[in-house]
Simulated scan of single mutants.
Amino acid sequence: MDKLKKFDLMEKISRELEDVRHSQQAVLEKIAKIEVDNIELGDKGIETKIPEIYERTAHNAEAIKEILESFQTKTEEFGDKNNISKLKEQQDIDSVK
């Protein structure tokens, strides 16, 4: 795989990880809302299970955040090391010819 294709794929994976991170945040917010709404309702099943689900989801969200940050750094370092901006400029020039 050439350097530009590899960099593009790394950027794509970063975007997908970012999407997953946002999705996890939305899930956490929904779980918290259910927990708050259940205070009024008082369902014992929800009261028992939701805190466990929230904790596992929060742990997963943190793991995704760590992976994302690490991978974004790796992607930036790869881009800098391989002078990706210059390679993209050259690719644009070549595509015009």
Rank of each mutant, 00 (worst) to 15 (best):
K3F: 09
K3L: 15
L4I: 05
L4M: 01
D8L: 09
L9N: 04
L9T: 06
E11I: 08
R15D: 09
E16L: 14
E16W: 10
E16C: 12
L17I: 00
V20P: 06
S23V: 00
S23C: 03
V27W: 09
E29K: 07
K33D: 07
I34F: 03
I34W: 01
I34L: 13
E35V: 05
E35L: 04
D37W: 14
N38D: 05
E40Y: 09
L41G: 14
L41K: 14
L41P: 04
D43V: 12
E47A: 15
K49D: 10
K49L: 11
P51V: 09
Y54M: 07
E55R: 13
E55G: 02
R56C: 06
T57E: 13
A58Y: 00
H59N: 05
A61K: 00
E62N: 07
A63H: 14
A63I: 11
I64K: 08
I64D: 05
K65L: 14
K65F: 14
K65S: 14
E66V: 00
L68F: 10
E69V: 15
E69L: 11
F71Y: 11
Q72C: 10
T73A: 13
K74R: 10
K74D: 12
T75D: 09
E77H: 03
E77F: 08
D80G: 03
D80R: 11
K81E: 15
N82A: 03
K86V: 11
L87E: 07
L87H: 03
K88T: 05
D92E: 14
S95R: 11
V96P: 08
V96K: 13
K97S: 08
